[in-house]
Amino acid sequence: MVPTPGPRVAEIVLTESERAELKGWVRRRKTSAGLALRARIVLAAADGGSNSAVGQRIGVDRSTVRKWRNRFIEQRCDGLLDEPRPGRPRLVGDARIEALITATLETTPKTATHWSTRSMAEHLGLSQSMVSRVWRAFGLAPHKQDSWKLSTDPLFCEKVRDVVGLYLDPPERALVLCVDEKTQIQALNRTQPIFPMLPGTPARVSHDYVRHGTSSLYAALDLTTGKVIGSLHARHRATEFLAFLRKIDTTVPAELDVHLVLDNASTHKTPAVKRWLTSHPRFVLHFTPTSSSWLNLVERWFAELTTKKLRRSTHRSVRELNKDIRAWIDAWNDSPRPYVWIKTADQILESIGNYCQRINDSAH
């Protein structure tokens, strides 16, 4: 028996502008998933084939293909857009939303440094929930404040290119170490017992504490392996830094050059340190720009030490603190994780240049 052919599907012929708009909906990251799928269906249908064949290529049912094929033929691209959903009409118009955003960005209350949802609601005669919804929708958070600082180092560009070039293309037969000191690490103990975490209740500690002295940690992070050479001292003078250099010298194999990335602290440039470096020519220093600690990868390791060990630890003496830090370093070196630098110097300088341009533009 010869099968009877199915109904002939409606043919879709796209104009150049329609095809460009549909492809834009498919590629654009902010397009809703539903609209992107409908655009793909129409584009596939325009290439030819039955509803079943198009559905198999797209991964949807043929009835879905039929629906959006017919909708497009009737209304073109407008037929693929979501229709307004029924519901209560908006009580707050665009003008009041604009006034809320403008007031948030350009004014402050008389009795505070920033707006709260309550104070803004009273100021504009809106509900707190409305203020909160608008702030969330536009990414406004008056209660938050970030910090920033641009380096004023006259050799900023040269130093960025030097350090980043070292990260992205380390020299052969050499070890690159990111060096810095974490000073004034306090041995703190809580005044009352710590209550452990329970279901529904976080761990609790007393808000006050007793100080038992401080320690300073010198650390050198191996760029390639992620291993750390550490040294703890009671003070952080040039004498201690020189002792740390000697420790690095004995730890690193003699056949390798040593490139150190470090900041511009005065303890790194004393006459005694310069004399030692002169007598140890395999050591090469690369200074980061002033106010640019983000360029030294060991700062990322210090952040992990702080969040994973120091912030919630208690110690009854400096000796106990030092023992804990050494144990943490040993555990880290058993399974080190190197930090991978990705951005080039040109990308960093371009990003900072754009940021400076935005700052200048906002001042006018």
Rank of each mutant, 00 (worst) to 15 (best):
K227Q: 15
K269V: 10
F283V: 14
T270Q: 07
Y339D: 10
S279T: 12
H123V: 03
G6P: 14
I194T: 15
P3L: 15
H114M: 06
W276S: 07
G34Q: 13
R19V: 03
S266K: 13
A39G: 07
G49W: 05
D324Q: 11
I194V: 14
N51D: 15
K274A: 12
G48Q: 06
W294I: 05
E122P: 03
A187F: 02
G79D: 00
P3C: 12
H286Q: 05
F156G: 00
S147C: 05
A36I: 07
G55T: 06
G230H: 12
R71N: 04
V252S: 01
R71D: 04
T288S: 07
L310D: 03
S63D: 14
R62H: 15
S116E: 05
L297S: 07
I185Q: 00
P338C: 09
V60K: 00
L140D: 04
Q145D: 03
S129L: 04
L245F: 05
Q347C: 07
T314L: 05
R316P: 00
K323R: 14
H315P: 02
I248G: 03
W341N: 02
K227T: 12
T250M: 06
A345N: 08
H315E: 06
R161H: 14
A137Y: 08
S151P: 01
G93A: 10
R8A: 14
L217A: 05
L297W: 00
V261R: 03
A99M: 08
W25N: 00
L140C: 08
E21S: 07
G48R: 10
V205Q: 12
A53N: 01
M1L: 09
P109L: 09
L232Y: 02
S231V: 02
T239N: 08
A45R: 01
R300P: 04
R57M: 05
E11N: 03
A33H: 08
H315K: 09
G213C: 11
D61P: 01
L232S: 06
V176F: 01
L223I: 04
F138S: 01
S231F: 11
K247Y: 03
A103L: 11
R118M: 07
A327D: 13
G353E: 13
V131N: 01
L198S: 10
R316V: 08
E240I: 12
G48K: 10
R319K: 13
V176L: 01
A265L: 13
W135S: 01
A10W: 07
T239E: 13
E350R: 14
L124Q: 05
D78E: 14
L126A: 05
V210K: 13
P193H: 03
V273W: 03
S119T: 15
P253A: 06
M197A: 13
L232V: 15
K67M: 11
S116L: 13
